[in-house]
């Protein structure tokens, strides 16, 4: 009987091994462990055994059943794994195919420049001031030390609507308005971005509409050295730490002394090339100490208060920074142009 059981075990394990799929394996299970299986038969025949042999035999039968069960489970797992593997293998995709594109736009390069500058100055304690694009002659010129008939008005041919109302030619009227609003009191630290307009024919370097961003600081002890330090922080942040800055004396009716700032040319590194007109320097912005007439006109005591102001053109900065060669690109809104400015630097 023992031998019979051993043979059954060997035969069953062999069948299990030979099962090619779950169905065959189940047939083996039914054949060897089911109600009509030979092992069950052996169990049924146990009654004929002596009381002393019965437990021994029972243990043996159970052991055989366990062995077979174990083997079946092992095989079943193997077969299932293989099935899963096969299924997954059949699901293989080409991972090099393009993904489902996210719809994505991006900001205009001038916004990028302006927001960068705003954030830089906000970090230094500035607020962002804005003002109307259609201005009164007073704020655009007179309050800025450009009385009617002043020769420097020639410098900025303007779009007038009536004799007293015009499209602002610079963002400086925002300075005049902010000072007036502050009623002779400091400190003021503002940056003023916005659109401005001049009577220029549109070409590669001129646009009748363009952006400007100005800064103004007024306080009781504002020095020209503060202007220089501030401009250097700006230039290095905007154009890179390795760029040199140079201040040159200049003239603007609303500042005295006046300054023009150059940065060393990135293209040639300062040795002179066509971009910097062989000078090694590129003009970036105009600045100066606020003219006492401008302070007084806005209600500030110029004996007590001093200030500095600076102004620059985001188009020019973008052109230099990104190598854009035609100012008109900023206003034609060609998507092939616009989409080039989405990446963060």
């Amino acid at each position: 009987m023992q031998e019979q059981l051993k043979e059954l075990q060997t035969a069953a394990i062999q069948k299990v091994e030979q099962s090619a799929n779950l169905k065959e394996l189940n047939e083996v299970r039914v054949a060897y462990l089911g109600k009509k299986s030979p092992i069950t038969e052996v169990l049924r025949g146990m009654g004929k055994l002596s009381a002393g042999e019965r437990p021994k035999m029972g243990a043996l039968v159970n052991e055989v059943r366990e062995r077979i069960t174990e083997k079946i489970e092992q095989k079943q797992k193997e077969l299932e794994d293989a099935a899963v593997f096969e299924k997954l293998a059949s699901e293989t995709i080409d991972v090099t195919l393009p993904g489902r594109p996210l719809k994505e736009g991006n900001h205009h390069p001038l916004t990028k420049i302006i927001e960068e500058i705003e954030d830089l100055f906000i970090g230094m304690g500035y607020q962002v001031a804005e003002g109307p694009e259609v201005e009164q002659d007073y704020y655009n010129f007179e309050a800025l030390n450009l009385p009617k008939g002043h020769p420097a008005r020639d410098m900025q041919d303007s779009f007038y609507i009536t004799e007293e109302i015009l499209l602002r030619t610079h963002t400086s009227p925002v300075q005049a308005r902010t000072m007036e609003k502050n009623k002779g009191k400091g400190p003021i630290k503002i940056i003023c971005p916005g659109k401005v307009y001049r009577r220029d024919n549109d070409d590669a370097t001129h646009s009748h509409q363009f952006m400007q961003i100005e800064g103004l600081v007024v306080g009781e002890n504002i020095r020209m050295s503060d202007l220089k330090g501030t401009l250097e922080v700006f230039a290095k942040k905007m154009f890179g730490k390795d760029r040199e800055i140079r201040l040159r004396p200049s003239f603007f009716p609303f500042t005295e002394p006046s300054v023009e700032m150059d940065i060393s040319c990135k293209i040639c590194g300062g040795t002179g090339c066509s971009v910097c007109k062989k000078t090694g320097w590129i003009e970036i912005l105009g600045a100066g100490m606020v003219h006492p007439n401008v302070l007084e006109m806005a209600g500030y005591d110029s004996k007590k208060y001093t200030g500095f102001a600076f102004g620059m053109g985001p188009e020019r900065i973008a052109m230099l920074k990104y190598g854009v060669d035609d100012i008109r690109h900023f206003y034609t809104n060609d998507v092939r142009f616009l989409k080039q400015f989405s990446a963060h630097e």
């Binding site: 304690g125 607020q127 962002v128 400190p187 600081v217 050295s225 220089k228 330090g229 140079r246």
Partner: peptide, 22 residues
């Protein structure tokens, strides 16, 4: 102008920020 030192404004100042609108 090269010989003017570089400093930053000192004394009372304003909080740097955008307005809610901005």
């Amino acid at each position: 102008y090269d010989n003017i030192p570089k400093t930053l404004p000192i004394g009372s100042t304003t909080p740097g920020k955008l307005s809610d609108y901005q």
